[in-house]
């Protein structure tokens, strides 16, 4: 009888544990940035400010980021704990998108720098020229299939 009880408890516990795991719906963070078909050129981690940024570029920017059709976007996220792996940080809340656009515009000659800020009311924009230079001189991460 005791043996039966032991196994009954084990089976019940297993079934309950399995059901609990399956029913829990994780709160997946919505994707706040639309890449509009651009590709990631590199990734930068700012440990001091707990931020991670991904530099996206269109096809022209990947070839040569100073040519007229080139468009770069540096997308910065707050880093957060990876809920499913202690030992890893993952991109969290979107903080800002900095754009360097080499298309000549009515308001001025390229490069045109702009920044869209999200979830970061205290953010103060840095010098546009310095940021443009920083973004344009970032090295490409090595991918085994580029250009693809």
């Amino acid at each position: 009888m005791r043996v039966i009880n032991v196994f009954t408890v084990a089976i019940l516990a297993f079934v309950i544990a399995s059901c609990t795991a399956k029913k829990e719906t994780p709160a997946i963070r919505p994707f706040a940035f639309n890449d509009s078909g651009m590709h990631v050129i590199t990734t930068i981690i700012n440990e001091k400010d707990n931020e991670v940024a991904m530099l996206y570029g269109n096809k022209a920017a990947i070839e040569n980021n100073t040519q007229p059709a080139a468009m770069l976007k540096l997308v910065t996220y707050r880093e957060q704990d990876n809920k499913y792996w202690f030992g890893s940080y993952i991109n969290g809340e979107l903080l800002r998108v900095e754009t360097v656009n080499m298309q000549p515009t009515a308001n001025g000659q390229p490069p045109a720098y702009s920044v869209d800020v999200y979830n970061q009311p205290a953010f103060r924009p840095a010098d546009a020229t310095a940021r443009t230079n920083f973004i344009q001189t970032l090295d490409h991460a090595w991918y085994p299939c580029d250009p693809y």
Binding site: M54, Y77, W85
Partner: peptide, 23 residues
């Protein structure tokens, strides 16, 4: 599958249990 370069980015991680970063 080299075509992954055309796919959308799901996430990026920075590991501190080792010294790698991932996309």
């Amino acid at each position: 599958m080299p075509e992954f370069r055309q796919w959308e980015v799901m996430s990026t991680t920075s590991r501190f249990d080792n010294t790698t970063m991932r996309v």
